[in-house]
Amino acid sequence: MNDLDNTIICRCSDVTLGDIRRLIAEGYTSFDEIKRITRCGMGPCQGKTCQQLIQREIAMATGQPIAALRDQTTRPPATGVRLELVAKEAYRDED
């Protein structure tokens, strides 16, 4: 394993470039598939760091332009919110 293999691609879940390249070679050639096996894109950053890096790897390995690759579904919330605050706001709206 060389240093490039150990480069962290997903900071939330400690996924390395080596992990990503192995999965692409095994046939997991979309961000969503790699996400479900490795947890990249599921952490607090929600893929804001890893997605573009992984898409670039997939594009290089498969010869497709990045624009042709499917991104993950963007889901709310845009940033982490404490559940008790959401609950408090909901009760306030009901009053």
């Binding site: 889901r75 709310p76 919330p77 982490g80 404490r82 959401v86 909901a90 009760y91």
Partner: peptide, 25 residues
């Protein structure tokens, strides 16, 4: 859903209400 879930969990398991939701699906 986010509001109803937050209200329910904050009521039944209040410690979890302190945590941040990062994603819904």
């Amino acid at each position: 859903f986010l509001e109803e879930m937050a209200k329910t969990v904050d009521n039944v398991l209040p410690a979890i209400g302190k945590l941040r939701v990062v994603r819904q699906w």
